[in-house]
């Protein structure tokens, strides 16, 4: 099998990689926004609970979470598809990281922004939606791009729960052709080809924010 054919074989898993990434974002984006804002706004016990949930998703090993959700939940009577489990676990893990960017972005705004909104008679919700979040999200754009790249790379783990992503394809090909150098180099290249344009987009975004 030529190196090129190996590469084409690996790219057959690109669809699954893209699917897990996109479906993962469906979990990651709302989680990051809701929990990042909640951690910013709440105090006391509520904040402790919010932080605990964020830390659970952020600080657990993704592989372990995948196994727990894929193999343990069915024992308790909850069966989720491999794709849903993968998107949920990877999405909420990435969302946990991104929620910290949301919170930090909100906290780094000068207090005068909120005060000016209050002095104009805007409600707390209006200040958050019209003044604080737009500024925080723009400032944190490059960080979100980093989180997205992390999510794409983390999809390589979903082969452990039977999904035929690029990594799974590489392992399949490795079973029929013993050529580890060509196969895993091609897999490295495949991930680079997917992630590098995102990094470039991030750099373009950063340059636009600064101007």
């Amino acid at each position: 099998m030529s190196t090129f054919n190996i590469w084409l074989g690996i790219l057959q898993g690109l669809g699954t990689t893209a699917q897990v990434t996109a479906y993962g974002l469906v979990f990651a984006v709302p989680f990051a926004l809701v929990f990042g804002v909640a951690q910013f706004l709440t105090t006391g016990m509520t904040r402790f609970l919010v932080t605990a949930i964020i830390e659970f998703w952020r600080s657990s090993a993704v592989v372990v979470l995948l196994f727990v959700f894929y193999y343990v939940l069915p024992v308790m009577g909850i069966t989720l598809s491999a794709l849903t489990v993968s998107a949920l676990v990877l999405g909420l893990n990435t969302g946990g990281y991104a929620s910290q960017a949301v919170r930090a972005g909100l906290q780094s705004l000068p207090a005068g922004q909120r005060e000016a909104g209050m002095a104009l008679g805007l409600s707390r919700l209006a200040i958050l939606l019209l003044i604080e979040l737009p500024q925080a999200l723009i400032a944190m754009g490059p960080t979100f791009i980093n989180n997205l790249i992390q999510l794409v790379k983390a999809t390589s783990l979903v082969s452990l729960v039977t999904l035929t992503d690029m990594t799974f394809r590489a392992k399949e090909i490795a079973q029929t052709n013993y050529d580890p150098v060509a196969i895993y180099s091609a897999l490295l290249l495949a991930f680079f080809v997917v992630c590098y344009p995102i990094a470039l987009a991030g750099r373009w975004l950063e340059a636009r924010i600064q101007s």
């Binding site: 005068g112 000016a116 002095a119 805007l122």
Partner: peptide
Amino acid sequence: TGMVFQGFNLFPHLTVLANCTLALRRV
């Protein structure tokens, strides 16, 4: 009351006009 701050506290992501119309529209 209207308040003018030492540090201006304009909203940097909005134009001058949008800074002025924000509360007119939303409040």
